[in-house]
Structure formats: structure tokens, C-alpha cells
Simulated assay, not measured.
Amino acid sequence: MSKQKKIIKNSLFPVSVFAIYLGVLFLMSGIHQGLVVLMNKMAWNGFIQTMVPMVYWGCVAVGLTLFARRKMKNTYEEPLHRLAEATEKVANGDFSVYVPTVHAADRLDYLDVMILDFNKMVEELGSVETLKTDFVSNVSHEMKTPIAVIKNYAQLLKNGTVTEEEKLEYTREIEEAAGRLSTLISNILRLNKLENQRIDPEIETYDLCGQLEECILQYEELWDEKELDLEVELEERTFVRADKELMGVVWNNLLSNAAKFTEPGGKVTICQTAEDGYVKVSVSDTGCGMTKESVRHIFDKFYQGDTSHSKEGNGLGLALVRRILILMDGEITVASEEGKGSTFTVRLPVQDHNAEYIAEYAEVSRNWNETGGN
């Protein structure tokens, strides 16, 4: 930033303009003196000697005015007119406008910086508009699918010829579709609240390892159903300061994705370590993995790299995970190789040097020791 300030001119009229005016006035004064000497030598009458300097300085004033007018037009008026026209287009919904700067990149002034910021703002608005359009389109599509399933199976149930077995199957399909629709709406509302800062995280000190164990046990039936080899490496306990409920959303999404994308008989590994003031949790699987393109977009809303599992989700889970971790001052990274599996790694800060945290941590540790870990 300091480097940028050095190359940005604070004034639209540099010292060179003063030098030009000074040089011109010196030159014009010299010419004026020459005219006076010439008129005296030629003994012109008084009227002519009065009118010639007036006409002369009138021409000088016109020239300087035209120069200043041209300078102001190139420096102020034309860029501001272009900016005004571009602003009107943006107000009418055209986000493809671009306003060129007045000077080159190495000679920028504050008007150029304003134009660059305007271009960046328009670009961001265009991206937001595109995301909004895609979001509405994706939401409509995602809602349409379970609604169509519910409608079709409801019509089949109205048919009196269906067997009891078919009724149970159709009812189960309707229930699953309704569940997907409910999850979709819940995730949309939750993500919208997170993105618009309408959720105030309830930060508390709690045992992360205990939370991970609870989340892992929730998927015990799924591990057994797919005969997955589960490997868990956790410390005895690690305390973090975060919103416990929101972090539960993070772990449940990562664990469910690992189970979903791992073929029966595969392996899922959960590893937790603490280092350099951070706690690191990685969830690895031996599933289908992702392409480099999928890795780049995996945290985008509604993006689903593996469409074969699209009916099991709605592409909002990882977008929720990333947004939650931003609120917790954490981060998430992914390493994946197509056909070999993926590893999602979460980093959360555990060090907080304020007195309140130290006292709270000491109290938790003391209670733990007094109760013997119960």
C-alpha cells in the first residue's frame, strides 16, 4: 500500500504546469518590452502605443485561457463525463462498462485511482449479479426436483391398483424428497444469515476432541452399512474457543461427504493435532477424488463436482463450512487426486492471550482434574 501511495500523484496539476506558465509569462514580458522599445524608436503616436500592448496582452490571455481550458478538459471534464456515462449504464443494469484511466499505470493520480476503484466495483457488481442469477436458477432447479418426485409418487398413490409394498416404497421416496427439500431450505436460510452477518456466533471454550467423537459416533450406522475402515487419531482433549453448534455443522458436513464419496470397503481417516497455536483436523477418504477444476470450485454454492451423488446433497454444505470457519477465524484447505480420494484440513486458533480466556481455560482444566475427566 505504501508503494502504491508513492506512485500516485496527489494533484492533477503538477509543478510542470507552473513552470510552463512562468516560462510563457517571462517570454511574453520580454516580447512586450521589445514592442515598447520598437514603438518608441519608430515614434508611433500615443494611441497606437496604448492599443498595441492591450491587443498583445489580450492575445496572450486568450492563449493562456485556451491552454488552461484544454488542460482542464483533458484532466477533469472528459474523464468525469466518461465516468458519468458509465455510472448511468451501471444504474440501468449494464455491468460490462469499463472506464479507461487518464494516465499510464506508473503515473496515476487520485482521479485515476477513483476510476480504477469504479471499474473494480462494477466488476464485483457484475459478479454478484451473475451469482444472484445462478443462485436463483440453482435454487429453482434444486427445489423443482424433490417437488416433482413428491408430486409423481403422490399421483401413483392415488391409483388404487398399487400394492402395499409399492405404497411403502412410494411413501419412503416422498419422505426422502421432503427431507432433501427441507434440508435445502434450511441450508439456504442458514447460509444467507451467515453471509449477511445476521448470526452472532456464541463463542465458548469447549473440548473439540469430545465434539469430534460425538459427531463420528452419529455416523456409526453408515460406517457399518458401507463397511468402511475408520481410522481415528485424536488427542485426549483440546480446548478451542468457537461456536460449538456451528462447528458441529462443519464436522457433520465433512464426515458425511467422506462417507458419501467413499465406495463400500474404503477407508476414512480423521486426524486431530495441535501445533503453533492452532488445532488441525483433517478428514481423509479413499473415494473418487476430484479434478483440479472441481477443487477450484468445491466451496462455491450449488457446485457438485460428482453428479452421480447429486441426489444425496445440494451443493451448499461446503459453502456453509467455509463461511462458518471465516467467522471462527479459521480456514479450510483441500487436497485431492482423482480416483485416489480427498483430504479436507481445518485449522482453528486455540491461543488467546487475553485474561478472560486464560481464566476460563484454567477453570475448565481445574474442573476436569477435580472430576477425574468425568
Results as ranks from 00 to 15, higher is better:
337 E>A: 12
17 V>H: 10
80 L>N: 12
17 V>Q: 07
134 D>G: 05
113 V>E: 15
140 S>Y: 12
278 Y>H: 13
40 N>V: 02
187 N>S: 14
50 T>G: 07
341 G>Q: 06
229 D>N: 14
192 N>L: 09
98 Y>C: 09
61 A>I: 03
154 A>I: 01
363 E>I: 01
139 V>P: 03
38 L>I: 07
280 K>N: 09
81 H>N: 13
299 F>G: 10
138 N>I: 02
158 K>C: 01
234 L>N: 09
247 M>Q: 15
276 D>K: 15
103 H>K: 05
129 E>W: 14
271 C>M: 06
202 E>G: 04
41 K>D: 15
106 D>E: 14
142 E>I: 07
278 Y>M: 14
78 E>K: 09
257 N>K: 00
39 M>N: 09
263 E>H: 03
51 M>R: 02
134 D>P: 03
229 D>A: 08
178 A>H: 00
187 N>T: 00
333 T>Y: 09
173 E>Q: 11
341 G>M: 03
325 L>Q: 08
275 E>I: 05
142 E>A: 15
219 Y>W: 12
209 C>H: 13
179 G>M: 01
1 M>D: 13
94 D>G: 04
361 Y>F: 13
342 S>M: 10
180 R>Y: 01
28 M>G: 02
6 K>G: 03
3 K>C: 07
151 K>N: 12
297 H>M: 10
264 P>D: 03
52 V>Q: 04
251 W>P: 00
278 Y>I: 02
362 A>C: 10
58 G>Q: 07
221 E>M: 05
289 G>T: 01
355 A>C: 11
240 V>G: 12
41 K>W: 12
34 G>P: 07
325 L>F: 13
83 L>E: 07
332 I>D: 03
95 F>Y: 15
110 Y>S: 05
111 L>Q: 05
163 T>C: 12
138 N>R: 14
337 E>R: 12
238 T>S: 14
121 M>K: 07
287 G>S: 01
156 L>D: 03
325 L>K: 09
290 M>C: 01
5 K>G: 06
116 L>H: 07
277 G>N: 11
276 D>Y: 08
156 L>E: 08
281 V>M: 14
65 T>R: 05
293 E>C: 00
338 E>V: 03
99 V>Q: 05
210 G>F: 08
270 I>T: 06
125 L>I: 02
94 D>N: 14
167 K>H: 05
147 I>M: 15
185 I>Y: 08
53 P>R: 04
255 L>E: 00
241 R>W: 06
267 K>G: 01
29 S>V: 13
323 R>V: 03
293 E>H: 06
109 D>G: 02
49 Q>T: 11
325 L>P: 12
243 D>Q: 08
39 M>S: 10
79 P>V: 02
101 T>W: 09
311 K>P: 00
87 T>Y: 04
190 R>Y: 12
362 A>I: 06
57 W>E: 06
258 A>T: 00
135 F>W: 15
217 L>A: 13
220 E>Y: 11
174 I>C: 02
105 A>E: 09
19 A>C: 02
103 H>V: 01
183 T>L: 11
63 G>N: 05
319 A>N: 06
74 N>I: 02
272 Q>Y: 08
66 L>Y: 08
20 I>T: 05
208 L>A: 15
230 L>T: 13
306 D>Y: 02
81 H>D: 11
44 W>I: 11
163 T>A: 10
95 F>H: 13
158 K>P: 00
294 S>L: 01
363 E>V: 02
364 V>P: 00
56 Y>L: 08
88 E>R: 12
